[in-house]
Amino acid sequence: MSTAAAPALPEAATAASTPTGLAAATRRQRRLAYWQAMPLGLVFLVFFLVPLALTLIVSFWEYNEYEIIPAFTLQNYADVFEGCLSGGDLCTTFRTYLSTLKFCLLGWAATLTIGFTVAYFVAFHVRSTAMQTVLFLICTIPFWTSNVIRMIAWVPLLGRNGLVNDTLMGLGLIRTPIEGLLYSDFSVVLAFIHLDTVFMIVPIFNSMMRIDRSLIEAATDAGATAWQTLWNVIVPLCKPGIAIGSIFVLTLIMGDFVTVGVMGGQQIASVGKVIQVQMAYLQFPAAAANAVVLLGAVMVLIGALTRLIDLRREL
């Protein structure tokens, strides 16, 4: 078989037998792999890398009310961190990130606890696969309606004259309505839990299903209590699932501004909201600078997470 004339086809690669032909075949195979990866690579390039590069470039441009001017200025970044080094009161940016981080932490802890418990129950306590599938599907029910509707549904429930307050007052437990139920940190976290828990359930459940059941039997045989088994066997083996779920939840909360806006009564700052306001006022370079800073912050967070768990090895 003449290798020179052979096109880069898989059959040609597998057909090669001589050592030199083998090297050529490997090369061809590698080239083929690149060709196969190209469609996705192109999509990635055009819809991710190019816009990202543009955002980065624009973040150094100047702007006025109606145009953005190609230049190189650090003013946009200086504006983002205005007053952050002077000490005293926290600057807007730090305050905003702190608030966002707080939601990240609360949302993450809550979704992890609930997500892990639900996944554990479905994976280990439900015996039949059919039932597991049914329960798993039930977890996705909230996704049958839009994000915004799911949030707004909380409003009549939590409002000053909402169901919860009415019920509590009807039972005589409180005299005046609890104001903090709606348009507060509480309602924001509640909405995040409602919206994001499923992103925790799915990867953790997936990890749990891959755990070899004989390991659990072995732990029991070795005299471990249920808690010891959970902590020393199941949790370590679920680490990849927990990490993936955490990345989902954290990035969702970091970039969110709709939930914080609707549930926080627009009174709570979020980085996304700052960017949105700047975009609305045609301050694209300022918005780009904020976006770059946000991207950096998220990457640091993800970096720290992957330091804790080596995802590629675990998978």
């Binding site: 807007t92 305050r95 627009q266 700047q278 006022y281 301050q283």
Partner: peptide, 19 residues
């Protein structure tokens, strides 16, 4: 209206929301 100091105003508004 749109103010001459619009950029500054928007920044201050973001500060108000974050306060």
């Amino acid at each position: 209206s749109v103010m001459d100091e619009n950029t500054y105003m928007v920044r201050k508004w973001n500060e108000f929301i974050a306060a």
